[in-house]
Write a protein that binds this DNA or RNA. Structure first.
Length: 595
RNA sequence: GGGCGCGUAGCUCAGUCUGGACAGAGCGUCGGACUUCUAAUCCGAUGGUCGUGGGUUCUAAUCCCAUCGCGCCCGCCA
């Protein structure tokens, strides 16, 4: 409804300015500060003052007089406050918002008939997922949810780097060493924790090896890479044995978030189907292509990139970047847009990728990156190879444990007589524990650096997931108490919707809450346009504050409440429930019915 | 050295793209509110040279230039 109101305000303002023969290129529409009653405001009078030869407040008055609110549906009144024009909501605005938001799909935007592939995580299958890259699945999943919510047809892809040198090293190490060669026990009973030990052992061996040993090992590693390049089934099978096992374990970890994928796209796919060879020959034909020091490269200086892009090694094998080019052309063939969630350390590669795709005559306007900065430890970087870092599994376990303690501590103080059993405690511990980790990460701008500290990551205080989740639990509590099912559209239940009279919801708290609910679809649209899920998190916080204000001021089920008002307020609670549940679903944070 | 990003209250962050109404939250500190739809809540107080210096503008945290600090990148790795 906010979007409709904004359109209406734009049209009204445009009309008034035209009538007064003012320019209409900048309407100066903005959202007013919190203590101002209006939904939208305009500061256009500032800009017109010198042209009109009158002070801004008088210009604002003139414009305000030109707008007849009888012609407007959602604007109830136009008021001036000094130089500002304020647009106040009509009863219809509030009533229609309430009606729209009692639908459990509230906030979903209309289908855009546009497909988008969101590639995220794509961590090399070398071992357990650690916290250093945990931002990727959390942001990526939220971006995918957000786009889906905003009406796009979304596929989620994990691009599997199964053809790189790292995997050749891993495969060699897996075949070369036995359990007896390994010093440590697996840190956890899941396959990637078992196998990563071979990878670490292999890397350690290569570091300390004698010249002969090194030569022998390198020959073996090289043969695996050549085998892959030549499309040999045997080489592919050897690598796959490692990749598929490690990946299955990593999937298990990511599923805890939960982050799920429609497809795991292996880069070997683009070697086996000939796309990479084809691409290499096309690259060689480019003006920018040079053959230097036995390797084929692309000079991108003309495009503002100093670093050459090597696309064929001197030994004739392709590189990650080469295969990724084929991968992206495949994406362009199958999707309208391609969004990739990447660590900021891949920024230069992303530029090279885009530029090269353009040189190959691709339209890259649908290619977008979401960049985030890595999570580091106070003592430095996390590394799978060296085994430094905090495993995501451990972070989630710890968070769930702390959440469980919280739930148990609060059990005795509960006023509500809903007798949580052990399953409930466990359910809440998971919802809150995992939700807190996700919310903490998704609510910040991805470009901000994060240094991982346990206490900070596991802070359950306000402005974190439980604060927002609690609001959801409160809405459910009220609806259940009234005999309604929180999960279902209010329209489908035993309640008289015709009773919605917006003027029944007359208190400031009710109107503020309704106005906040009204903004939700606009927040979804803007966040989706800019690929910024953290805006949804900011919104959930604002929403929670508004709801808590309403909760404090406006009893719903009390005996003193008039039945009609009770129904209107119940509708408002249901609208709140759907709004916050849907906002949380975009963030991938669970919405508990009770906690 | 070059390129990119970040710098807002003691701490963690919104706000910056699209300049406007006294710069907002939370944590912390101090003081209050549970016979009431769940107090993981709420109310009040405290706290800010928006890194620094210039510029543009009626108006700058926001735009431009310079500068400092921190991070990332500058592999025939991924």
């Amino acid at each position: 409804m906010f979007l409709s109101l904004r359109t209406e305000v734009e049209a009204a303002l445009d009309g008034a300015l035209s009538t007064l023969e003012f320019p209409t290129d900048d309407l100066g529409i903005e959202e007013p500060p919190e203590d101002v009653e209006s939904v939208l405001a305009s500061s256009v009078a500032f800009r017109l003052a010198s042209e009109a030869g009158t002070p801004p407040p008088q210009v604002a008055g003139q414009i305000g007089d030109e707008i007849d609110t009888d012609d407007l549906r959602y604007v109830g009144a136009v008021e001036t406050q000094g130089p500002y024009l304020n647009f106040l909501p009509s009863d219809a605005y509030l009533a229609e918002t309430l009606a729209a938001a009692t639908d459990d799909a509230y906030g979903h935007l209309t289908d855009r008939e546009e497909s988008v592939v969101v590639e995220h995580t794509s961590a090399n299958p070398t071992g357990p997922v650690h916290v250093g890259r945990a931002r990727n699945p959390i942001i990526g999943d939220a971006v995918a949810n957000l786009l889906e919510f905003a009406g796009y047809d979304v596929d989620r892809h994990y691009y599997v780097n199964d053809a790189g040198r790292q995997m050749a090293v891993f495969t060699w190490a897996y075949e070369r060493f036995d359990e007896a060669d390994l010093e440590d026990e697996p840190e956890r009973d899941r396959i990637e924790y078992d196998l990563v030990r071979y990878y670490r052992k292999g890397n350690a061996y290569l570091e300390d090896a004698s010249e002969d040993e090194l030569e022998q090992a390198e020959a073996e590693i090289e043969s695996i890479m050549q085998g892959l390049e030549a499309g040999e089934e045997a080489a592919y099978d050897r690598v796959s044995e490692v990749v598929d096992q490690v990946l299955s374990g990593m999937k298990g970890c990511l599923a805890r978030l939960p982050a799920a994928f429609d497809e795991f796209v292996k880069e070997t796919r683009f070697m086996r189907n000939g796309d990479t060879d084809d691409l290499v020959s096309r690259l060689k034909e480019l003006d920018a292509a040079v053959y230097e020091e036995d390797a084929w490269q692309l000079e991108l200086d003309d495009h503002g990139i100093d670093k050459n892009l090597v696309f064929l090694r001197s030994d004739g094998t392709s590189l990650y970047a080469t295969r990724d080019l084929a991968h992206h052309e495949w994406k362009f063939d199958n999707y309208d847009r391609a969004v990739t969630v990447l660590g900021e350390d891949h920024k230069l590669q992303a530029r090279q990728l885009r530029t090269t795709l353009e040189l190959l005559d691709n339209d890259t306007s649908g290619l977008e990156q979401v960049l985030y900065s890595y999570v580091n430890l106070p003592e430095g970087k996390m590394s799978t190879r060296r085994g430094t870092g905090v495993d995501l599994d451990d972070l989630l376990d710890e968070s769930i444990d702390r959440a469980r303690e919280e739930v148990e501590d609060r059990l005795e103080d509960r006023i509500r007589d809903d007798e949580l059993d052990e399953d409930d405690v466990e359910r809440i511990a998971h919802q809150v524990g995992i939700g807190a980790v996700r919310y903490d990460i998704v609510s910040k701008q991805p470009t901000k650096a994060i240094t991982f500290e346990w206490d900070r990551a596991l802070d359950f205080e306000a402005q974190s997931a439980p604060y927002v989740q609690y609001v959801h639990a409160r809405t459910c509590g009220i609806l259940e108490e009234a005999g309604l099912d929180p999960e279902t559209d209010l329209a489908a239940q035993e309640i008289e919707l015709e009773g919605f009279e917006a003027d029944l919801l007359a208190t400031e708290a009710e109107r503020d809450l309704l106005e906040t609910i009204a903004r939700f679809p606009a927040v979804v649209e803007e966040a989706a346009d800019d690929l910024e899920p953290h805006r949804i998190a900011t919104y959930t916080r604002e929403f929670a504050e508004q709801f808590n204000g309403f909760y404090r001021e406006c009893p719903v089920l009390s005996d003193e409440i008039d039945p009609e008002l009770r129904e209107a307020r119940l509708a408002l609670v249901a609208a709140s429930k759907h709004t916050i549940a849907n906002a949380l679903s975009i963030l991938g944070v669970a919405a508990p019915r009770s906690m």
